[in-house]
Design a protein around this nucleic acid. Structure first.
Lengths: 191, 191
DNA sequence: GAACTATACGGAAAAGCTTTCCGCTTAAGC
DNA sequence: GCTTAAGCGGAAAGCTTTTCCGTATAGTTC
């Protein structure tokens, strides 16, 4: 369907600048928050604002790109974890990795659900990339008998993401509570 | 300590305008999001932007005020609920009321944790007002034997607030999971 | 390896939003 | 009704994002 009509190799310096911008943005977002002036990012990347806006027409496009990079890295980490640990441990390890990733995104994660239409596509990307990843981990753990309840990957992903906004220590406690809920799900027959 | 040095009765038209602004802001935030231009709010309230900024020097002050109004209303609802229902039911009813309140705040609730220093004081107010409220409900329910685990009001309050950002249906499911966790807390002796 | 051309760059200008300022209006007290 | 100080409206200032365009340069051709 949506095939690439004109792939355009993208010039070498352009590619370098895009990378520098992404890296600079990640840093600046981490220190000054997602609302930091675009100029600050361009300066750190060593380019003009014009270049920034050439590659990311809207400020929010840059925010999205940085977020997606992080999501990709997180998803890519799963197979290795899954191969190196038992199902239950792999799930736990990955959730930890996921939590740590989210911890660096503070304002970013909240912007995701701020109602701003610019970020509407993010949850979809997030889900499409991480949903299957966690889904596999979860199903494997359930098959091995370590998990009782059936929670959807989507629900759990969202829950941990949102909970993480309040700090690592806090999210650790609440995620533990959620996992307890998964293990000892009420047997009183509620759907 | 912090006694009112000069209470200043506040002129009648001023009081009326503050109220109109608060009401207009609540509406506009609900429809256009918390980032709606200040002009839009001033127009709906039928005043000039100067008036808006006289009463709320920073844009964020208006956001804070609207949020606090909602928090107050929610806290004030507890005693009546507590008097009209059994401990467990009162807790459930209040959490529902609380969830519904949060549902109307979308972007507002996320702004709360966006890292913006302007909103730093909000969690404190939020906690000071709602913490004791939920604390009482929770302790009463625990005394009645309906709840096993000891979760702090703070943790639960935050958890539900954050979870609610994803929609009423979703938060309903996740809150149920949390409550199951409270009832059937793991006995494996983890601190 | 020099010339050519389309791509990309930088930063100045435009547009939009928040916040400030100040002359005019009006509520409150006498 | 007159006085006066609180309060009002909207124009102007200050910042940020976003656009524009003349200039520079990677990639290609001879």
């Amino acid at each position: 369907m949506t095939e690439t009509p004109a792939p355009r190799p993208l010039r070498a310096d352009a590619r370098r600048n895009v990378d520098a911008l992404l890296e600079a943005a990640r840093t600046v977002f981490g220190t000054s928050g997602v609302d930091a002036p675009a100029k600050e990012i361009a300066d750190l990347a060593g380019v003009g604002v014009g270049t920034l806006y050439r590659h990311f027409p809207l400020r929010s496009d840059l925010v999205k790109a940085v977020f997606q990079r992080g999501v990709d890295a997180c998803a890519d980490a799963a197979p290795a974890l899954s191969a190196a640990h038992e199902p239950g441990a792999a799930l736990a390890e990955w959730l930890l990795r996921y939590t740590e990733f989210l911890a660096t995104k503070r304002g970013l994660a909240s912007a995701l659900h701020s109602g701003d239409p610019a970020f509407e596509s993010l949850p979809g990307y997030f889900m499409g990339r991480l949903g299957p990843t966690l889904g596999t981990l979860l199903e494997t753990a359930r098959s091995s008998g370590e998990i009782q309840a059936d929670v959807t990957p989507e629900d759990l992903l969202y829950a941990v993401a949102t909970l993480s906004q309040h700090g690592v220590a806090y999210s650790g406690r609440m995620v533990a509570l959620l996992v307890d809920g998964l293990r000892y799900r009420a047997v009183s027959g509620r759907s």
